[in-house]
């Protein structure tokens, strides 16, 4: 069985489609856009959050502190809205070294932005309420318990 089994006019009509589609505009511009969007999507949540926070802290320190406080409240509320045992395994898996981590132990060096965000998120995702160590000056929080990483926060 080959194409000769089709009537000639049908065969010609089918082959005409090849010529027809040759006139269509190229998809290259759309493809380039698709590749750019995919590259942007690959930028991790952490990078985006850090970049946004760094930009905000540089331009408006007060707004940055406020945003951190809002984030802390939001995550605290979210924490209490989630069933009690959620994420418990991850918290239990923390090492002793992790547990002893505190922003205060960084010493004279100011904590990096990542550390600040880590600490902020940890303070609400781990058991125990956070409390301000520096009375709202830089919105630093002392960890009362185990810190959490971004990955565990996302998984949580």
């Amino acid at each position: 069985m080959d194409s000769s089994s089709l009537p000639p006019e049908v065969r010609d009509a089918l082959r005409a489609r090849r010529a027809m589609f040759a006139q269509s505009p190229s998809v290259l511009p759309h493809l380039h856009r698709r590749i750019r969007v995919a590259a942007m999507e690959r930028t991790s949540f952490r990078e985006r959050l850090s970049a946004w926070a760094a930009a905000l802290a540089a331009v408006r320190p007060a707004a940055y502190a406020g945003a951190c406080a809002v984030l802390a409240v939001t995550l605290t509320l979210a924490h209490f809205a989630i069933p009690a045992h959620s994420g418990r395994t991850m918290v239990a898996a923390r090492t002793t070294a992790d547990t002893s981590y505190s922003l205060n132990e960084v010493g004279a060096l100011p904590p990096s932005l990542d550390q600040k965000i880590d600490a902020l998120i940890s303070s609400v995702s781990a058991p125990g309420a956070p409390h301000s160590a520096t009375a709202g000056v830089d919105a630093h929080y002392v960890l009362t318990s185990t810190p959490a990483s971004y990955d565990s926060v996302v998984a949580f």
């Binding site: 040759a22 190229s26 998809v27």
Partner: peptide, 13 residues
């Protein structure tokens, strides 16, 4: 892409 897009377009259509 330029070499194959017409043929792929016909196939997908």
């Amino acid at each position: 892409v330029l070499r194959y897009e017409s043929r792929m377009r016909v196939t997908i259509y």
